[in-house]
């Protein structure tokens, strides 16, 4: 997994709702969304490390290939 920014790829309907919020509310929601994305990324990175460690050794290389290119 590479650590790119934590912006979420929102669809146009969701973006329209967010754009319609007052600036301070929009900013607060954007902070919460980034926090959620960051939290999920951290959980997935940690889970991946631990999961690979639990996989039987002969399968580890194949498992690592499964996650190549993961965000």
């Amino acid at each position: 997994m590479t650590r790119d920014d934590d912006r979420l790829p929102l669809d146009s309907r969701t973006q329209a709702v967010i754009d319609g919020l007052p600036p301070d509310e929009r900013e607060h929601l954007q902070i919460l969304m980034k926090k959620a994305a960051r939290h999920q990324r951290t959980m997935l990175e940690k889970a991946l490390d631990e999961a690979v460690g639990m996989v039987p050794a002969p399968l580890r290389k194949r498992v690592q290939k499964l996650f190549l290119g993961s965000s």
């Binding site: 309907r13 969701t14 499964l66």
Partner: peptide, 29 residues
């Protein structure tokens, strides 16, 4: 609801390849 569904989908889409990787991992083990 639009907001919730959109954010749910985006949180999934952003990490789709990792979720799919874990799903495939469960088929291998």
């Amino acid at each position: 609801r639009t907001l919730r569904e959109g954010i749910t989908e985006a949180l999934f889409e952003k990490f789709r390849s990792t979720f799919t990787g874990f799903a495939r991992l469960s088929s291998m083990l």
